[in-house]
Design a binder for these strands. Sequence first.
DNA 1: TGACATAGGTAGATTATCTACATATAATTG
DNA 2: CAATTATATGTAGATAATCTACCTATGTCA
Lengths: 115, 115
Amino acid sequence: MATDNKLFSGNTTMLVLKLLEAEDMYGYQIIEELAKKSDDVFRLKTGTLYPLLHGLENDGIVTSYDEHADNQRVRKYYKLTSQGKNLLKKKQSEWKNYTDAVSRVMDGGVSHAFA
Amino acid sequence: MATDNKLFSGNTTMLVLKLLEAEDMYGYQIIEELAKKSDDVFRLKTGTLYPLLHGLENDGIVTSYDEHADNQRVRKYYKLTSQGKNLLKKKQSEWKNYTDAVSRVMDGGVSHAFA
DNA sequence: TGACATAGGTAGATTATCTACATATAATTG
DNA sequence: CAATTATATGTAGATAATCTACCTATGTCA
């Protein structure tokens, strides 16, 4: 399906933080998980995700640590900080606020976005 | 409230087309209607809307005609073309597709966006 | 008269994402 | 064994939607 991602931008941070809330993850894993959970609607490019992660780390939203898998591969894991958890809550409430407003315009009804 | 509009961009076209589906409108009116229906979540700037409308007209999504109100004021009304109606349908289905995917990531549940 | 609402507009900045490229190792397949 | 694909991280520059900031002009109200 892959609706043009550019046209609904701005939520990538929320989605990434949500994944990291459940479990520490490395970049490549985030891309795969997001694609899987969204049925390929979200297929982040590396040129999108890695700079985003670096920015989040720089802002204290996540921290990172290296670990290698069974093989010699080094993976850079990212972990939510408490500041990151707060940001996630804020992004969720903004998303709800936004989708509610869209619903009011589009059908006059109420939104049922996640709580 | 006004969640940072920049961070959820890309849907302005859909919202504008939806308003024009119900009724021909002029630019200033679109801004006011959108603010009203969304409880001020969407407050388009003129620098956003006018170039957008010009682009839509250029692409055959809307047509425009001048009319003056009771006073001498000239208003430029915009009207959806049949092409515009099709684009609206497409945008609506993309929006649903997108919000469904967000819901799957955020709570594993289904979206309830407008049909 | 001066301020504010109405009405339309442009130029340039900002920023999120994309495309395209670069590097390197592991696993699979012909 | 060689070639390809999957895994894994990254940067540079382009694209595009919106914003800020500005401009013009008329109508209305204090």
